[in-house]
């Protein structure tokens, strides 16, 4: 709770910083050029659209990564050893690879369009970037799933076996429903990390908020705009992530008592 109060104050502090940097810029720009706030307001709709793309990328990457990661995580606990080992290697690989490098790989390796029979499916850069971000998410979700399942008391498995559940039934009907709760907070933390990583896609030419901010700065060609505009972007990300952080913390508290 304390940490939350501190980060709340941090948000207020950032707002203060924005105001200060804008005021400082206004003093600098007193030579009759358009005011900083007016200029930033002019670009806000475009950069706002870019921010929606950040959110879209994060949601799609999280969905893809979670589905793939769930399969991989269960694979890590498979009784069939080749499958188990393969899943462990894949998990460790994607969990420990730099996100930016994976992004570059996806952008350069995936074709810009795919032919399925006679149908040509375009693969715009943002989709390739989303796949690139989904890979590390997959590796991390895999570990979250493994951790969540293994954190359950082994007696759960024994009891299910005593009730004549087979392995699949035990997993889906006994283990996973109980493991979801402890898995939720780290999963939400992962999402917060992911949304904050989405500006990485600007380096591969996707027109998200960060890229558009840079384009706007080039178009305005006013260096005093740089700090306030990046700060406004920081605040947008903070405003989006902070409620998620609060909610995660609340869930953590609630589940901590039960186990």
């Amino acid at each position: 709770m304390n940490a939350l109060r501190v980060s709340g104050r941090f948000g207020v502090g950032m707002m203060g910083l924005l105001l200060a940097s804008v005021l400082f810029g206004e003093v600098q720009a007193a030579d009759g050029s358009a005011s900083l706030l007016a200029t930033m307001w002019k670009w806000a709709p475009l950069i706002g659209q870019g921010f929606l793309l950040n959110i879209l990328i994060s949601v799609v990457a999280m969905t893809l990564g979670t589905v793939a990661g769930l399969g991989l995580g269960l694979g890590q606990m498979s009784p069939i050893w080749p499958l188990r080992h393969a899943a462990q290697i894949v998990t460790q690989f994607f969990r420990n690879a730099p996100w930016l490098v994976l992004l570059f790989y996806c952008i350069l390796l995936l074709p810009y369009e795919m032919r399925l029979g006679g149908l040509v499916v375009a693969m715009p850069a943002w989709i390739k970037a989303t796949v690139g971000l989904a890979l590390p998410v997959m590796g991390n979700v895999s570990e979250i799933v493994r951790g969540g399942v293994q954190a359950l008391p082994p007696a759960q498995w024994d009891s299910a076996e005593a009730l004549a559940f087979n392995r699949r039934q035990t997993l889906w009907m006994v283990i996973l429903p109980q493991a979801i709760k402890p898995m939720l907070p780290p999963w939400m933390n992962l999402y917060a990390v992911l949304i904050m990583a989405t500006p990485l896609v600007s380096v591969v030419g996707v027109e998200e908020a960060m890229t558009l901010t840079r384009f706007a700065l080039s178009a305005e060609n006013r260096s005093e705009l740089l700090l306030p505009m990046y700060l406004a972007l920081l605040i947008a990300f903070f405003a989006y992530c902070y409620p998620i952080a609060r909610w995660t913390a609340r869930l953590e508290r609630r589940f901590a008592v039960k186990l």
């Binding site: 475009l46 706007a216 080039s218 178009a219």
Partner: peptide, 14 residues
Amino acid sequence: KADYRPWGFIDPSG
């Protein structure tokens, strides 16, 4: 280019 005024840049409508 979208960051090389005045050869190639963007306006506020994108």
